[in-house]
Amino acid sequence: MIRMENVQKAFGSNQVLRGMSLEIPKGSSLVIIGGSGTGKSVALKCILGLIQPDAGRILVDGQDATSGDRDAFLARFGMLFQGGALFDSLPVWQNVAFRLLRGSLKRPMDEAREIAIDKLRRVGLKPAVADLFPAELSGGMQKRVGLARAIAAEPEIIFFDEPTTGLDPIMSGVINDLIREIVVEMGATAMTITHDMTSVRAIADNVAMLHDGVIKWTGPVAQMDDSGDPYLDQFIHGRAQGPIEAVR
Protein backbone atom coordinates (compact mmCIF):
# COMPACT_ATOMS: atom_id res chain seq x y z
CA MET A 1 0.00 0.00 0.00
CA ILE A 2 1.15 3.53 -0.80
CA ARG A 3 0.08 6.31 1.53
CA MET A 4 0.75 10.04 1.12
CA GLU A 5 0.10 12.10 4.23
CA ASN A 6 -0.22 15.87 3.94
CA VAL A 7 2.57 16.12 1.34
CA GLN A 8 3.64 19.66 0.50
CA LYS A 9 6.02 20.90 -2.15
CA ALA A 10 6.84 24.39 -3.42
CA PHE A 11 9.17 25.57 -6.15
CA GLY A 12 10.22 29.05 -5.09
CA SER A 13 7.01 30.99 -4.50
CA ASN A 14 4.91 28.47 -6.45
CA GLN A 15 3.21 26.16 -3.93
CA VAL A 16 2.43 23.07 -6.02
CA LEU A 17 1.31 20.51 -3.43
CA ARG A 18 -0.51 22.04 -0.46
CA GLY A 19 -1.13 19.02 1.71
CA MET A 20 -1.89 16.10 -0.59
CA SER A 21 -3.16 12.95 1.14
CA LEU A 22 -3.90 9.77 -0.71
CA GLU A 23 -4.01 6.00 -0.26
CA ILE A 24 -3.46 3.36 -2.94
CA PRO A 25 -4.38 -0.15 -1.75
CA LYS A 26 -2.06 -2.98 -2.77
CA GLY A 27 -2.91 -4.52 -6.15
CA SER A 28 -5.27 -1.70 -7.15
CA SER A 29 -5.04 0.76 -9.99
CA LEU A 30 -5.42 4.44 -9.12
CA VAL A 31 -5.61 7.17 -11.72
CA ILE A 32 -4.87 10.76 -10.74
CA ILE A 33 -6.58 13.34 -12.91
CA GLY A 34 -6.31 17.10 -12.85
CA GLY A 35 -5.48 20.07 -15.03
CA SER A 36 -2.03 20.84 -16.36
CA GLY A 37 0.32 22.21 -13.72
CA THR A 38 -1.70 20.97 -10.75
CA GLY A 39 1.19 18.88 -9.45
CA LYS A 40 0.32 15.37 -10.64
CA SER A 41 3.82 14.60 -11.90
CA VAL A 42 5.35 16.26 -8.83
CA ALA A 43 3.31 13.93 -6.58
CA LEU A 44 4.52 10.91 -8.50
CA LYS A 45 8.13 12.06 -8.43
CA CYS A 46 7.87 12.70 -4.68
CA ILE A 47 6.90 9.06 -4.11
CA LEU A 48 9.90 7.89 -6.16
CA GLY A 49 12.24 10.27 -4.34
CA LEU A 50 13.10 12.16 -7.55
CA ILE A 51 11.81 15.28 -5.77
CA GLN A 52 12.06 15.79 -2.01
CA PRO A 53 8.77 16.99 -0.46
CA ASP A 54 8.97 20.02 1.85
CA ALA A 55 6.61 18.47 4.40
CA GLY A 56 4.45 15.40 4.95
CA ARG A 57 5.13 11.69 4.81
CA ILE A 58 5.11 9.07 2.10
CA LEU A 59 4.81 5.46 3.22
CA VAL A 60 5.16 2.36 1.06
CA ASP A 61 3.92 -0.73 2.89
CA GLY A 62 4.28 1.22 6.13
CA GLN A 63 7.91 2.12 5.48
CA ASP A 64 9.02 5.72 5.02
CA ALA A 65 9.95 6.19 1.35
CA THR A 66 12.82 8.55 2.19
CA SER A 67 14.67 6.19 4.56
CA GLY A 68 16.24 2.78 4.07
CA ASP A 69 18.01 1.19 1.11
CA ARG A 70 17.25 3.30 -2.01
CA ASP A 71 18.23 0.54 -4.46
CA ALA A 72 15.96 -2.02 -2.80
CA PHE A 73 13.18 0.57 -2.66
CA LEU A 74 13.47 1.54 -6.33
CA ALA A 75 13.78 -2.11 -7.40
CA ARG A 76 10.11 -2.48 -6.41
CA PHE A 77 9.04 0.20 -8.93
CA GLY A 78 8.63 0.37 -12.67
CA MET A 79 7.83 3.61 -14.44
CA LEU A 80 6.57 4.57 -17.88
CA PHE A 81 7.58 8.16 -18.56
CA GLN A 82 5.48 10.60 -20.56
CA GLY A 83 7.93 10.85 -23.46
CA GLY A 84 9.22 7.30 -23.06
CA ALA A 85 12.58 8.54 -21.67
CA LEU A 86 14.34 5.79 -23.60
CA PHE A 87 18.14 5.99 -23.67
CA ASP A 88 19.08 7.16 -27.17
CA SER A 89 22.53 5.61 -27.05
CA LEU A 90 21.30 2.08 -26.37
CA PRO A 91 19.43 -0.31 -28.66
CA VAL A 92 15.85 -1.16 -27.74
CA TRP A 93 16.62 -4.47 -26.06
CA GLN A 94 19.27 -2.89 -23.81
CA ASN A 95 16.76 -0.20 -22.85
CA VAL A 96 14.24 -2.86 -21.87
CA ALA A 97 16.81 -4.99 -20.06
CA PHE A 98 18.64 -2.00 -18.53
CA ARG A 99 18.00 -3.10 -14.97
CA LEU A 100 18.87 -6.71 -15.79
CA LEU A 101 22.28 -5.78 -17.20
CA ARG A 102 23.60 -4.00 -14.10
CA GLY A 103 23.16 -3.68 -10.37
CA SER A 104 21.58 -6.12 -7.95
CA LEU A 105 19.27 -7.69 -10.58
CA LYS A 106 22.12 -8.36 -13.05
CA ARG A 107 21.71 -11.43 -15.28
CA PRO A 108 23.91 -12.92 -18.02
CA MET A 109 23.60 -10.91 -21.24
CA ASP A 110 21.89 -13.71 -23.24
CA GLU A 111 19.30 -14.23 -20.54
CA ALA A 112 18.67 -10.48 -20.22
CA ARG A 113 18.19 -10.25 -24.01
CA GLU A 114 15.75 -13.18 -23.94
CA ILE A 115 13.71 -11.49 -21.20
CA ALA A 116 13.77 -8.19 -23.13
CA ILE A 117 12.50 -9.86 -26.30
CA ASP A 118 9.81 -11.65 -24.29
CA LYS A 119 8.67 -8.34 -22.75
CA LEU A 120 8.71 -6.66 -26.16
CA ARG A 121 6.50 -9.46 -27.45
CA ARG A 122 4.22 -8.92 -24.45
CA VAL A 123 3.65 -5.31 -25.52
CA GLY A 124 3.06 -6.33 -29.13
CA LEU A 125 6.47 -5.63 -30.65
CA LYS A 126 8.36 -8.07 -32.88
CA PRO A 127 11.83 -9.35 -31.93
CA ALA A 128 13.26 -7.45 -34.93
CA VAL A 129 12.62 -4.21 -33.01
CA ALA A 130 15.09 -5.31 -30.34
CA ASP A 131 18.17 -4.18 -32.25
CA LEU A 132 16.79 -0.83 -33.44
CA PHE A 133 17.59 2.42 -31.67
CA PRO A 134 14.82 4.48 -30.01
CA ALA A 135 15.13 7.26 -32.62
CA GLU A 136 14.11 4.74 -35.30
CA LEU A 137 10.73 4.05 -33.61
CA SER A 138 7.37 5.83 -33.89
CA GLY A 139 5.83 7.50 -30.82
CA GLY A 140 3.50 4.56 -30.18
CA MET A 141 6.35 2.06 -30.44
CA GLN A 142 8.46 4.14 -28.05
CA LYS A 143 5.61 4.05 -25.51
CA ARG A 144 5.44 0.28 -25.87
CA VAL A 145 9.18 -0.05 -25.38
CA GLY A 146 8.88 2.20 -22.32
CA LEU A 147 6.12 -0.06 -21.05
CA ALA A 148 8.25 -3.15 -21.69
CA ARG A 149 11.11 -1.52 -19.74
CA ALA A 150 8.76 -0.64 -16.88
CA ILE A 151 7.67 -4.28 -16.49
CA ALA A 152 11.00 -5.98 -17.36
CA ALA A 153 12.04 -6.62 -13.76
CA GLU A 154 8.51 -7.63 -12.68
CA PRO A 155 7.97 -4.69 -10.30
CA GLU A 156 5.32 -4.69 -7.57
CA ILE A 157 4.37 -1.06 -8.23
CA ILE A 158 4.12 0.56 -11.65
CA PHE A 159 3.72 4.28 -12.38
CA PHE A 160 2.40 5.56 -15.70
CA ASP A 161 2.94 9.26 -16.46
CA GLU A 162 0.53 10.40 -19.20
CA PRO A 163 0.70 7.07 -21.03
CA THR A 164 -1.44 8.14 -24.01
CA THR A 165 -0.32 11.76 -24.51
CA GLY A 166 0.64 12.39 -28.12
CA LEU A 167 -0.81 9.16 -29.46
CA ASP A 168 -3.68 8.72 -31.91
CA PRO A 169 -6.96 7.40 -30.44
CA ILE A 170 -6.43 3.85 -31.69
CA MET A 171 -2.87 3.62 -30.33
CA SER A 172 -4.14 5.17 -27.08
CA GLY A 173 -6.69 2.37 -26.87
CA VAL A 174 -3.99 -0.23 -27.48
CA ILE A 175 -1.77 1.23 -24.73
CA ASN A 176 -4.71 1.48 -22.30
CA ASP A 177 -5.64 -2.17 -22.91
CA LEU A 178 -2.01 -3.25 -22.49
CA ILE A 179 -1.67 -1.36 -19.22
CA ARG A 180 -4.87 -2.87 -17.87
CA GLU A 181 -3.91 -6.40 -18.95
CA ILE A 182 -0.39 -6.15 -17.57
CA VAL A 183 -1.43 -4.68 -14.24
CA VAL A 184 -4.06 -7.38 -13.73
CA GLU A 185 -1.73 -10.15 -14.96
CA MET A 186 1.13 -9.09 -12.66
CA GLY A 187 -1.09 -8.20 -9.71
CA ALA A 188 0.84 -4.95 -9.48
CA THR A 189 -0.18 -1.75 -7.73
CA ALA A 190 -0.54 0.92 -10.41
CA MET A 191 -0.67 4.68 -10.29
CA THR A 192 -1.39 6.58 -13.49
CA ILE A 193 -1.45 10.28 -14.27
CA THR A 194 -3.55 11.36 -17.20
CA HIS A 195 -5.88 13.96 -18.69
CA ASP A 196 -7.39 11.38 -21.00
CA MET A 197 -10.83 10.34 -19.71
CA THR A 198 -10.88 7.28 -22.00
CA SER A 199 -7.69 6.12 -20.24
CA VAL A 200 -9.28 6.76 -16.85
CA ARG A 201 -12.24 4.51 -17.63
CA ALA A 202 -10.03 1.82 -19.17
CA ILE A 203 -7.30 1.68 -16.51
CA ALA A 204 -8.70 2.82 -13.16
CA ASP A 205 -10.13 0.96 -10.19
CA ASN A 206 -10.08 4.22 -8.27
CA VAL A 207 -9.80 7.84 -9.34
CA ALA A 208 -8.38 10.84 -7.50
CA MET A 209 -8.90 14.41 -8.66
CA LEU A 210 -6.00 16.75 -7.83
CA HIS A 211 -6.68 20.47 -7.91
CA ASP A 212 -4.88 23.38 -6.33
CA GLY A 213 -2.38 21.06 -4.62
CA VAL A 214 -4.92 18.91 -2.76
CA ILE A 215 -7.08 15.89 -3.59
CA LYS A 216 -10.57 17.29 -4.25
CA TRP A 217 -12.30 13.95 -4.73
CA THR A 218 -11.37 10.30 -4.63
CA GLY A 219 -13.45 7.18 -5.11
CA PRO A 220 -14.11 4.16 -7.33
CA VAL A 221 -14.24 4.83 -11.06
CA ALA A 222 -17.88 3.64 -11.16
CA GLN A 223 -18.89 6.53 -8.88
CA MET A 224 -17.03 9.17 -10.85
CA ASP A 225 -20.00 10.21 -12.98
CA ASP A 226 -22.35 10.62 -10.00
CA SER A 227 -19.91 12.19 -7.58
CA GLY A 228 -21.75 15.47 -7.23
CA ASP A 229 -18.33 17.16 -6.94
CA PRO A 230 -18.38 20.31 -9.08
CA TYR A 231 -14.59 20.18 -9.75
CA LEU A 232 -14.70 16.57 -10.92
CA ASP A 233 -17.85 17.14 -12.97
CA GLN A 234 -16.31 20.10 -14.75
CA PHE A 235 -13.12 18.18 -15.47
CA ILE A 236 -14.64 14.93 -16.75
CA HIS A 237 -17.10 16.77 -18.98
CA GLY A 238 -14.45 19.20 -20.21
CA ARG A 239 -16.56 22.29 -19.45
CA ALA A 240 -14.99 25.75 -19.66
CA GLN A 241 -17.44 27.05 -17.01
CA GLY A 242 -17.20 25.90 -13.41
CA PRO A 243 -15.15 26.23 -10.24
CA ILE A 244 -11.87 25.47 -12.07
CA GLU A 245 -10.74 28.67 -13.70
CA ALA A 246 -9.95 28.25 -17.38
CA VAL A 247 -7.52 30.75 -18.85
CA ARG A 248 -8.76 31.85 -22.28
Binding site: K45, L48, G49, L50, R70, D71, L74, A75, F77, G78, M79, F81, Q82, G83, A85, L86, F87, D88, F98, R99, R102, G103, S104, L105, R149
Partner: peptide
Protein backbone atom coordinates in the same frame (compact mmCIF):
# COMPACT_ATOMS: atom_id res chain seq x y z
CA UNK B 1 21.23 18.24 -20.91
CA UNK B 2 19.07 16.52 -23.53
CA UNK B 3 18.88 13.46 -21.30
CA UNK B 4 17.73 15.69 -18.46
CA UNK B 5 15.13 17.51 -20.54
CA UNK B 6 13.71 14.23 -21.88
CA UNK B 7 13.56 12.70 -18.35
CA UNK B 8 16.27 10.13 -19.17
CA UNK B 9 18.15 11.15 -16.01
CA UNK B 10 14.99 10.53 -13.93
CA UNK B 11 14.58 7.21 -15.75
CA UNK B 12 18.13 6.24 -14.74
CA UNK B 13 17.31 6.93 -11.09
CA UNK B 14 14.10 4.88 -11.23
CA UNK B 15 16.17 2.05 -12.73
CA UNK B 16 18.35 2.11 -9.57
CA UNK B 17 21.28 3.72 -11.40
Amino acid sequence: ATMKVTEQIDALVTLST
